[in-house]
Computed example of a mutant assay.
Amino acid sequence: MTLRGLPLTTPARTCADLLLQLPRAEAVSVLDSALHEGLLSHPDLLGIPAFLSGRPGAPRAREWLRLADGRAESPLETRVRLICLDDGLPPPLLQWRIGDPERGCSYRIDLGWPTHLVGVEADGKAPHSTPQALYQDRHRHNRLSTLLPGLTLLRFTWSDTYDPPRILLPLRQALGCP
């Protein structure tokens, strides 16, 4: 297809090409983002293997397709989820919704293990670095602790993803895993 005279590929074809070029975490982040933003549908995702056929890296890229999840709202959430998955701790829920009937609202926790009352927040620098954001995060954390007594809410940043034990050790402890 063309746009203003420039040749373009479809989002599905672009994702296929990127799957062949990027490392796993970045490739899955692209898929998650494309799904989350509505640029790619689940039927589109099912069509990507046709674009991969016969190309170097295709078997690896096909494996990564099954990891795509449009509920992830950022590449950081995707990275944390993949670290958990690789260690055998896939989160049962992404965007775990906790209702607050008293205030008529709800809160979402990025990754959740509800039966263990464990949640993980992936805190990116931009949305969480201002003083106002810090106060809001504290208020939210306190409210969630009130709504779900016994909740363990772990918070991780980009730097934690470069040293997976910084994520996995506290998570395993919170989940009661060896």
Rank of each mutant, 00 (worst) to 15 (best):
I98E: 00
G112C: 07
P92H: 10
P131C: 08
P101F: 13
P101I: 12
Y107Q: 03
P92K: 00
W113D: 03
Y107D: 03
L117T: 09
G99K: 08
Q95G: 07
P92W: 02
R103S: 06
D110M: 01
P114V: 06
G112H: 06
E121A: 10
P127V: 12
P101L: 14
G119Y: 02
Y107K: 00
H116C: 09
W96E: 07
W96A: 02
G119N: 02
D123I: 02
C105V: 15
I98P: 04
Q95N: 05
A126W: 03
I98A: 03
S106M: 10
Q95C: 12
P114R: 01
P114M: 05
D110K: 00
T130I: 06
S106A: 14
R97C: 14
W96M: 08
E102N: 09
R108M: 01
P92F: 03
E102D: 15
Q132W: 06
I109E: 03
T115R: 13
H116F: 10
V120S: 00
G119Q: 02
G104K: 11
T130W: 08
A122T: 04
R97P: 06
R97I: 15
C105I: 15
P131G: 08
L117C: 09
R103P: 01
G99T: 14
G99C: 12
S129T: 13
Q132F: 11
G99Q: 14
D100K: 14
C105H: 11
P127H: 14
L111I: 04
S106C: 13
P101G: 11
H116S: 14
C105P: 02
D123S: 01
R103A: 13
E102T: 14
L111D: 04
I98R: 03
P131A: 09
A122C: 13
V120Q: 01
A126K: 07
Q132G: 11
T130S: 13
R103T: 09
R97W: 10
L93S: 04
R97E: 15
